[in-house]
Design a protein around this nucleic acid. Structure first.
Lengths: 196, 196
DNA sequence: GTCTATAAGAAGATAGAC
DNA sequence: GTCTATCTTCTTATAGAC
């Protein structure tokens, strides 16, 4: 197990738990949730099945842990963006920049949030319920920025949905056609439209 | 087995084959490809596993049959739209109308083409190769319309990708948030932008 | 062309030793 | 906390009767 700097003060059990979450998060992103088996997680973590089961009852519990962590990360992003600028337009630009910084991964594996949500939207109501809050937190934050720009609540939400949709579409098409160039150009265009 | 009018002149073997394709197509759409088992197809068709295997070597062969059929259907749409109007803008509006007519299904199960493509884009290179041509055929047809509107080849293709992206994004978000109202409004907006 | 039956593998879940 | 071993279920693949 590689030692991470922020795990120095964790108890052994917490370290292992964190290690499982991190490796699973990567596997779920790269291969998808349902395509990732317990054996895959065993191999990636170097731990036994029994040990993983000790920390997480089942695969769903791992997913829950991952989403909880991603939600905290998202809140962290929002906080940073809000502190970096008082101007909502600039904050929306930061959101676009995050996508641009992930261009390689998005080309290869799609949007980390979108592909996971899409995997559960059809016929996995339980997993869908676990994942949706992450999507909703972005929706709410984006809507907040549009509110600050003067839109009423309903309009702000629609604009947030619309932006989410555009970004998801660009990510989906760039992923399907393996075209990073398209992703960058479209996101730059969206960024311009938002900030003008 | 329900008798379909266009199967009257088919041999029994062809009828069965067609029946398997149709039922599997619905299952793959509603539940996804990997979530659909042979048992599901058995139940939906009312046929035995041995019989299905007789007509299609495996699940992948069924998928190939479905994509081939969907490609023919797409070509059929293109032909109709081109015959209905000489104006590329109107043709693009027909494309949008098709999406609007599928609003209920898209809200419930996502875009039939997009969700299938997305399922294979991550780590299913073989199935990805089978599905992509369908996506490409829409890309090519849309690009053709933008060409007719005066764009050079590169621009026309980019505009086609851009439109595909917007539509996929709207479908994805409408599906994730189960919001048909959003889908209709966004597609209407896109339609207006295209035809103005 | 259609069926039943079975084999062989992979997955997740569980039990118990250290 | 961590491991090995087993159990059950699900899924695909195959063999052979009618």
């Amino acid at each position: 197990m590689k030692q991470k700097c922020y795990t120095y003060f964790m108890k052994q059990g917490e370290k292992t738990k964190q290690h499982i979450l991190e490796q699973s998060n990567v596997l779920f992103y790269i291969n998808g949730y349902s395509s990732t088996s317990f054996t895959d997680i065993m191999e990636a973590t170097g731990l036994s099945k029994g040990n993983i089961t000790y920390h997480f009852k089942n695969k769903q519990a791992i997913l829950e842990g991952i989403i909880a962590q991603r939600l905290r990360e998202a809140e962290c992003f929002f906080k940073i963006w809000e502190e970096k600028s008082q101007n909502p337009k600039e904050r929306l630009a930061f959101f676009c920049d995050m996508i641009l910084s992930e261009q390689e991964n998005i080309e290869a594996y799609g949007c980390p949030m979108g592909t996971l949500t899409a995997e559960f939207s059809k016929n996995e109501p339980t997993l869908y319920t676990i994942t949706l809050p992450l999507f909703q937190s972005y929706r709410a934050w984006l809507a907040k920025q549009f509110s600050l720009l003067g839109a009423n609540n309903a309009d702000a939400d629609t604009q947030a949905m619309s932006l989410l949709g555009r970004v998801q579409g660009v990510a989906m098409v760039a992923h399907s056609f393996k075209d990073r160039y398209f992703l960058v150009n479209e996101i730059e265009k969206i960024k311009e439209e938002l900030t003008k």
